[in-house]
């Protein structure tokens, strides 16, 4: 039976930043904040599915912010997630051509929390475009690239969890997959600007 434990804010941020105990930490975020954050979406024209999708996006963005050292800890995780959730949902509504007047007013009057979450929203589309490219790669390429660049496994470790003959074959495959992704990016000139924003923004 799984032992459920919740981390205090400082420990949670440290875990996410260092990539340690990721599963437990993400579960803690879900168990602590999903109900209240999804309630906000569902009470503002959103469905249950909307609430789940927005929350997933909020968690990914939060971890990304923490791992890039942009979470300064001036507000609690709860406050930060609430802000992120609200902005993400309003952004989604705008994208769908709907808006909540009351919420727009609220958005303008509300003090900016922690870092400018609207900046994150500008990146929202850009990040979605980039990750969609990875999704277009074949399953094998996705697996090898994620094991190497996200899970930070060595070639030897990747060999152990795949069917390749030796490390060099894995290395070659990984190189080809990366080049394939590079090619896909190059085929989309509009992405060049996004890349500059993301990398040097």
């Amino acid at each position: 039976m799984e032992v459920i434990r919740n981390f205090p804010d400082s420990e949670l941020v440290a875990n996410l930043r260092n990539g340690k105990k990721m599963d437990e930490s993400i579960k803690t975020i879900y168990r602590s904040y999903f109900d209240s954050l999804s309630w906000y979406v569902m009470n503002n024209s959103g469905s249950r599915q909307d609430a789940e999708d927005i929350f997933q996006e909020v968690v990914v963005n939060f971890i990304d912010v923490v791992q890039k050292d942009k979470f300064r800890g001036e507000s609690s995780i709860k406050t930060f997630l609430y802000s992120l959730n609200r902005f993400t949902w309003l952004n989604e509504l705008k994208k769908r051509g709907r808006s909540l007047k009351r919420e727009e007013k609220y958005e303008h009057e509300q003090d900016r929390v922690e870092l400018d979450t609207s900046e994150l929203m500008t990146e929202r589309e850009e990040k979605a475009t980039l990750t969609n490219l990875v999704a277009k790669l074949g399953q094998t390429c996705q697996k090898i690239l994620i094991l190497f660049y996200y899970e930070n496994l060595s070639m030897k470790e990747i060999l152990a969890v795949t069917d390749y003959d030796n490390e060099q074959v894995v290395r070659n495959k990984k190189y080809k997959c990366l080049k394939q992704l590079e090619k896909m990016i190059n085929e989309r000139p509009a992405l060049k600007k996004i890349l500059k924003n993301l990398l040097h923004g």
């Binding site: 789940e52 929350f55 968690v59 990304d64 980039l130 990750t131 990875v134 996705q142 994620i146 996200y150």
Partner: peptide, 23 residues
């Protein structure tokens, strides 16, 4: 820069998958 963006997109995609699995 393109390669760095590719690496970043893989990292983000991996993170999305991780969160989706726990979701």
């Amino acid at each position: 820069d393109t390669l760095l963006a590719a690496k970043e997109s893989i990292r983000l995609y991996g993170l999305k998958q991780k969160v989706a699995a726990i979701h």
